[in-house]
Design a protein around this nucleic acid. Structure first.
Length: 577
RNA sequence: GUACCCGUAGCUCAGUUGGAUAGAGCGUCUCCCUCCGAAGGAGAAGGCCGUUGGUUCGAAUCCAAUCGGGUACACCA
């Protein structure tokens, strides 16, 4: 619908042979419906370039629009807006459009099958996923779903940091518990500040005993370290995969840092950068945040010229002792992604990584010769509340809410909804009491309720008239759908494909729940209007034809809600429990 | 000190990337069940979009300053 109007407008503009940036033209429903059904700003944008007045251009566009069969009226308003009014039949056609395309109604082909890599979660395998990861996980998975919707071939990817001191600390922690479980006394101060003391460490130790019994006792660290590292990581990854599965996520790819290292990818990345002249030996300037009195040591290191690619300072890729930094590993990792054919990538990171954003973008540009790009989305913290009172968490002491805790308490779907319903730059207050409330405090409930009501109407229909199939809904006469409440709903349904497209391109998944809330709102309003005005009731025992045409609108609404929930990874409820 | 983010109704947040008179929910107030699910709906009140300039036909949105809040700033991972 919007597309055909747009084409009509573009057709007129072509006659003026101006170079048109078509993406600037809006063809949208106006905020205030009294202006009409659709408006466009085309005349105002291109009057200057075309060398005519906005009014003159607008008149030409209007004339063309009026020849379109769906348009009933097109008028010029204000500084040059063109307000278009469509015939009811145009909106009634939307219903059939949805019914025929069903779950493909909102599909687009912007990606044209191109590869898209969405990296998210990527939690260190040193503990179970916690609430922060939950937001990351849900955000990333919905972004992936959205890109699939608009025609990309998407890979969901998890980067496993299976190297470094944290993993060693985990292995040592497990070993301590292992000794303990086998009856050895361990010193009180054995668990230092950098050790892991959560309950899961004991679980791993128990599994270690199941597998190796007492074999590893009384051996030197050099003898068990490699084995324990691998064992612990495997256990933790299984644990993490379970957690992800519990909120409906499965990754296509897990990439191991250690494996990349063995493939010498770090050296290859370095070679590429050297060839581009992006590597030099130097000393980083003293950070401004460190005062003159603070401790600061000049260190000659191998540096990456990140400033050439928009970063604020150059970045170290080797420590002063010659070993690689963490960032060097990331260079290798992103080189790997590029080599696997990804020129478009998205990465989801916590807001505390904001200092890392520019250097990652710089790395991808440098390694790909500017042919690849990575979009990074940072998400803010989630505060958990119990009846408006914040719950204190401390990761150190092992006293933090895990993803599993949340899912067990409020369920997968509510968790997903709460995590995705806010803009990623905004902190979320997650109140357990509100999350499970059955009221407007809980918007997911409101949407599910609309869906359940629609299902209930269909059941009611079937109890009177018997089964009905999709084809009958398509073929029926739609002239019963004429009330403003019905038209408003149809207009909103017409916008759905556009909504999916812009949401995906902007990488702002929260727009989906907002949209669905609006659909639910329009539906509930229509439902209630039927209480006062019997003509608007969905089921009329004495008029089967009209009833079917009302149902066709409900069916279209149901498809769109289902589609939206599916993007969010939420299962629609045909009955409220 | 620097970078990134936030500032919109009493509270929690939207605002379709620059469009016309800025919108929801909660809370407050008034109505609506003999009626397909009231777990709902209709309406009222509530705003200098932090502040000040700029860009243009047009700004909550873009730019520059500024104030307030958050996060991060060497070889940690």
């Amino acid at each position: 619908m919007f597309q055909s109007i747009r084409e009509c407008v573009l057709g007129t503009l072509k006659q003026y042979s101006v170079d048109i940036r078509t993406d600037l033209i809006t063809v949208e429903p106006p905020k205030d419906q009294s202006f009409g059904d659709i408006y466009t700003n085309a005349a105002m944008l291109f009057a200057k370039k075309a060398g005519v007045s906005p009014r003159e251009l607008a008149e030409a566009i209007c004339k063309n629009l009026l020849e379109c069969q769906f348009v009933s009226d097109a008028v010029i308003a204000g500084p040059g807006f063109i307000n278009i009014r469509l015939r009811d039949s145009a909106w009634q056609n939307v219903v059939n459009n949805v019914l025929m395309k069903k779950e493909k109604y909102s599909d687009a082909d912007i990606g044209a099958g191109a590869l898209m890599n969405v990296e998210f979660v990527s939690a260190n395998p040193t503990g179970p996923l916690h609430t922060g990861h939950a937001r990351n996980a849900v955000f990333g998975s919905v972004v992936a779903n959205l890109f699939e919707k608009i025609g990309y071939k998407v890979a969901r990817e998890f980067y496993v940091n299976d190297q470094g001191n944290q993993i060693k600390a985990l292995a040592r922690s497990v070993y301590l518990r292992y000794q303990e479980l086998l009856g050895r006394k361990i010193q009180d101060d054995a668990f230092g500040a950098d050790m892991y003391c959560g309950g899961y460490v004991k679980d791993i130790a128990q599994k270690l005993i199941d597998a190796y019994e007492a074999e590893l006792l009384d051996k030197d660290e050099s003898e068990w370290m490699d084995l324990l590292r691998k064992f612990s990581i495997d256990q933790m990854l299984d644990n993490i995969k379970d957690d992800l599965e519990s909120i409906g996520i499965s990754m296509e790819q897990y990439t191991s840092e250690e494996a990349l290292c063995k493939k010498k990818l770090v050296d290859e990345a370095l070679d590429i950068l050297i060839r581009h002249g992006d590597i030099y030996e130097g000393v980083l300037p003293r950070p401004k945040g460190i005062g003159d009195d603070d401790e600061w040591e000049e260190r000659p290191q191998t540096l990456f010229r990140a400033t050439k690619y928009g970063d604020d300072v150059d970045r170290a890729i080797k420590k002063s002792d010659g070993t690689w930094t963490y960032f060097a590993g990331d260079l290798a990792y992103h080189l790997d992604k590029i080599r696997r054919g990804y020129s478009r990538m998205v990465a989801v990171l916590g807001a505390d990584h904001n200092g890392y954003l520019k250097r990652l973008k710089a790395a991808v540009r440098a390694l790909s010769n500017d042919s690849a790009d990575i979009e990074i989305r940072l998400y803010q913290l989630v505060n958990f509340l119990e009846n408006s009172i914040p719950i204190k968490m401390s990761k150190r002491s092992g006293n933090f809410i895990t993803l599993k805790d949340v899912v067990e308490r409020v369920g997968k779907d509510v968790t997903r909804y709460m995590m995705i319903s806010r803009h990623h730059d905004v902190m979320i207050d997650f109140d357990f009491a509100k999350a499970i409330a059955h009221s407007m405090d809980n918007p997911l409930f409101y949407i599910q309720y609309a869906y359940a009501r629609i299902c209930s109407v269909f059941k009611h229909y079937e109890s009177i008239f018997g089964e009905i199939n999709n084809q009958a809904l398509i073929d029926c006469d739609k002239s019963c759908l004429f009330d403003v409440a019905e038209i408003s709903l149809m207009k909103a349904l017409a916008f759905w494909p556009e909504q999916v497209k812009t949401t995906a391109i902007a990488i702002e998944p929260h727009r989906i729940p907002n949209y669905l809330q609006n659909i639910a709102y329009l539906f509930h309003a229509l439902w209630n209007k039927g209480k006062a005005n019997t003509v608007l009731r969905f089921i009329d025992k004495d008029d089967k034809n009209c009833t079917i045409s009302k149902l066709s609108l409900l069916q279209a609404t149901r498809f769109v809600i289902e589609d939206g929930l599916k993007i969010m990874g939420i299962v629609p409820m045909s009955e409220m429990i």
